[in-house]
């Protein structure tokens, strides 16, 4: 199963001066050691397989640079369960004990960096936020759907980031306070309004779950629209800025593409009410265009 380079069993510096007899003996010894090692691996895997407190993971494998992995496949890993173990913990255990070439992104391990959104048992979840005990076996771990797979569980996020950038995801205003050191204060109510929308960690789970985004590459997608909501609803940006934001959102591939399937809202690991925000922006856009007063 392992595509790891086997460890060197003997010291190479001595090989020049030794006789052919010793070389033969060493070769035999090495062979035996390898066989023992193999045997041990098989036994360990067998033990893990039969133990009741292990979890069976089926993990998507693909690597365009390794001939045996060019055809995508699923590898089985049996991981001993520890209380509180997450999908990410299990993947790390599998990588450290079975196959160091198993590739996935992770960093914070606390649902804040957004790097480990995965497709687990048929839905988008954050690896570090999903308890193994909540899942039925075998646990299928795949890279996010609707994204190009670079290697194993790693997908190309470029398109997602492009959509995020397209909505100008930063604070802009034309009405700066007079004093240079004066703060740009926000009312409590306004902060409360945008609170949930600020929690996005750019994990792309929502984008990956969206059927519309899957069929229309130009659709901004839930995360980008939510990002736009965060600023469009921020009263400190001012009326003309809001106008500009609504113009971006009203485009052909903006808010109107949303068909209220709620799949983004269901998968978002930060519980952002994405559909609600998109719907509110649709109403804002209409109100904006129907202004008779």
């Amino acid at each position: 199963m392992s595509t790891q380079v086997p460890e060197q069993v003997e010291d190479e510096s001595a090989s020049e001066t030794v006789s052919t007899g010793k070389q033969k003996r060493d070769a035999k010894k090495r062979e035996r050691a390898e066989r023992v090692q193999e045997q041990r691996e098989v036994e360990a895997a067998e033990k893990a397989r039969t133990a009741d407190d292990t979890y069976h993971l089926k993990v998507f494998r693909y690597d365009p640079e390794v001939p045996e992995k060019q055809e995508p496949r699923f590898d089985d890993f049996y991981v001993p369960y520890k209380q509180g173990m997450t999908i990410l913990d299990a993947l790390m255990w599998a990588r450290d004990h079975y196959d160091s070439s198993l590739t996935f992104r992770h960093s914070c391990r606390q649902a804040i960096c957004g790097s480990d959104a995965l497709f687990v048992n048929g839905s988008q979840r954050l690896g570090c936020k999903t308890q193994l005990s909540d899942l039925s076996e075998p646990v299928r771990v795949e890279p996010l759907p609707h994204a190009d797979v670079v290697k194993d569980l790693v997908v190309d996020m470029e398109h997602f980031y492009d959509q995020m950038e397209a909505v100008e995801p930063y604070f802009q205003t034309n009405s700066l306070p007079d004093g240079e050191l004066e703060e740009q204060r926000q009312t409590r109510e306004n902060r409360e309004k945008v609170k949930m929308s600020t929690r996005c960690i750019w994990c792309s789970a929502c984008m990956s779950s969206c059927n519309i985004a899957a069929g229309d590459n130009e659709y901004l997608g839930p995360a980008a629209i939510n990002k736009a909501y965060r600023f469009a609803m921020d009263e400190r940006e001012g009326e003309d800025m809001k106008q500009r934001r609504l113009e971006i959102l009203e485009q052909e591939h903006g808010v109107w593409r949303c068909q209220t399937q709620f799949s983004c809202t269901e998968v978002c690991p930060k519980d952002i009410p994405l559909t609600e925000h998109i719907q509110e922006l649709k109403r804002e856009a209409i109100k904006n265009n129907l202004k008779f007063w």
Partner: peptide
Amino acid sequence: MSQSYNRGLIEDFSRWREFSAGMWAWI
């Protein structure tokens, strides 16, 4: 960008594997 693999049909069907109310309502 490096080479990448298109999961083709599996890709298209995998998103229907998990039942989600809003998705079926739409269909």
